[in-house]
């Protein structure tokens, strides 16, 4: 009961701030509402017993990636005069809503095919670092995990190649 109240509260704030990201005109305000959104998503993860994911969410997304975003916005020093423009809003919103609709259909289809998990089937150490570590390095997710890390390496190499004129 208490958890349900917290869940709806956190989710509401996350959704409101998520909407704020696209509707706010000040780029810094947009970025900060994205930080707030990440924060309350992390709170939802805690309610799901995924403490590690919650901490990593704050550490990586709110703490590192968004700091970089805000840093770049501040470096470009966007101010009142040069707010993001909202021209051509009709066509863009149609394309955006179409994409969002496709995503929603995909998500709901996937959710409908989920096997039902009974609470008793969840192990005691579910969500702990040890559990996630075993799932990633010993369990079924080893190959996807290594594939993702290879992808990240490719991204880093690509960034270096793009940024450096002479190697």
């Amino acid at each position: 009961m208490f958890e349900a109240v917290l869940f709806y509260l956190f989710s509401l704030v996350a959704i409101v701030s998520g909407v704020g990201v696209v509707t706010m005109r000040n780029p810094i305000a947009s970025a900060l509402s994205l930080v707030v959104c990440f924060f309350f998503l992390a709170a939802d993860y805690v309610l799901l017993d995924a403490h590690f994911v919650a901490v990593i969410q704050i550490l990586v997304y709110a703490g590192a990636i968004m700091v970089l975003f805000v840093f770049v916005i501040m470096l470009l020093n966007l101010r009142h005069g040069d707010h993001l423009s909202f021209e051509d809003i009709g066509r863009r919103s149609v394309v955006g809503m179409g994409t969002a609709g496709l995503l929603a259909i995909g998500l709901f289809t996937a959710l409908g095919q989920l096997p039902e998990i009974l609470p008793a089937a969840i192990p005691a150490d579910y969500g702990t670092i040890a559990y996630i570590g075993r799932a990633l390095f010993e369990g079924p997710y080893l190959l996807p995990f290594e594939a993702v890390s290879a992808l990240l390496t490719v991204a880093v190499v690509g960034a270096v190649v793009l940024a450096k004129k002479e190697i």
Binding site: L32, V35, V55, I58, L59, A62, G63, A64, V67, V70
Partner: peptide, 8 residues
């Protein structure tokens, strides 16, 4: 994570 938030 918390010290990372301190940057803000």
């Amino acid at each position: 994570a918390a010290t990372g938030m301190g940057v803000y």
